[in-house]
Simulated assay, not measured.
Amino acid sequence: MAMKSLTYFAVLYLLALTLPLAIASDPSPLQDFCVGVNTPANGVFVNGKFCKDPMTVSADDFYFPGLNIAGNVNNAVGSNVTTVNVNNLGGLNTFGISLVRIDYAPNGQNPPHTHPRATEILVVQQGTLLVGFVSSNQDGNRLFAKTLKVGDVFVFPEGLIHFQFNLGHTPAVAIAALSSQNAGVITIANTVFGSNPRIDPNVLARAFQMDPNVVRDLQNRF
């Protein structure tokens, strides 16, 4: 009986050690680098990309210029996200990281959205931002919000809805790192009201407790 109990707890202990690895967003690399390309060239398929022949890899495969250039914020939400991920910097393949620059017009926002595959850490470079995220249903949908100034840092947990809003009357800039080579993004309003084909307005009307005509109007906007 004692031996069975010992085995039981040993299995639980091993599961506790391995579980964090099993749920990691991106697997750890097993080589120095695997520069991602879109076609096979004497390589293998890894993390959605073919590995470039290591003998043809150069410094340019790990280089991305122009993150100092402001993005165009002349749009409905007043913000622009410049993304540096595996799709435009092949050297990031298998490394589990990516980077974005976010520009905000005065009163502009990066609207509520979620990254399904990454935690995000953001630092303010210019301006003043109101930022926050909302916990899941099981944690009571609590809002965690903070006003950030230049040099302040805030973390948005993986998969949770979050946002940033420029409180100032001048442009703002933030840099954020994400724990995935391709974090993905789901903008809530676009997803719910701008799906293709449209979600039945009666479904959304009941979910949001609003008139179906209001839902149809929102769908037309997106």
Rank of each mutant, 00 (worst) to 15 (best):
P106F: 08
Q31C: 13
A205I: 08
S58L: 07
F45W: 11
G140C: 02
F193N: 03
F95W: 11
Y104R: 08
R142H: 09
P116K: 12
N47S: 14
D53W: 12
V57S: 02
V73Y: 01
R198V: 03
Y8W: 15
C51L: 07
M55T: 10
P54W: 08
F222L: 10
T39I: 13
P171H: 14
R101H: 06
L92M: 04
P171S: 10
G108K: 03
N75D: 06
D139M: 10
Q219M: 12
I69E: 03
S25F: 00
N220E: 15
Q164G: 10
S136N: 08
T147C: 10
V100I: 07
K52T: 08
V81S: 00
I188N: 00
G108H: 00
V81P: 02
Y13E: 10
H169A: 13
K149T: 03
N213D: 15
T119W: 00
A174K: 00
L15A: 15
D139W: 09
A118C: 00
N93T: 10
G91A: 14
N137G: 12
A183P: 15
T83M: 08
S195P: 03
Q164M: 08
A183R: 00
G66P: 07
L14D: 11
P116T: 09
K49T: 02
A76P: 03
F9L: 15
F9H: 11
I97A: 14
T191F: 03
I69H: 03
I23W: 06
S179W: 05
Q126A: 07
P157E: 06
P40F: 07
V123F: 02
G78T: 04
F193V: 01
H113W: 02
H169M: 09
F222M: 09
T114A: 07
N85K: 05
G96M: 08
A2Y: 13
N202Q: 11
V215Y: 04
F95M: 13
N166V: 14
A10R: 08
Q126N: 15
G132F: 04
R198D: 10
S98C: 02
I188K: 04
V46P: 00
R221I: 15
F193T: 02
F50R: 02
V46D: 00
Q109H: 09
P201T: 11
G140V: 01
M55E: 15
S25G: 10
Q164D: 11
A22Y: 06
P111M: 11
S25K: 00
N182G: 01
K52I: 02
D217Y: 12
Y104W: 14
F9D: 07
E120N: 13
F33L: 11
L122N: 06
V173P: 05
A176Y: 01
H169R: 14
K49F: 13
V11S: 05
M210F: 13
I175T: 12
G127M: 04
T94P: 07
F95P: 04
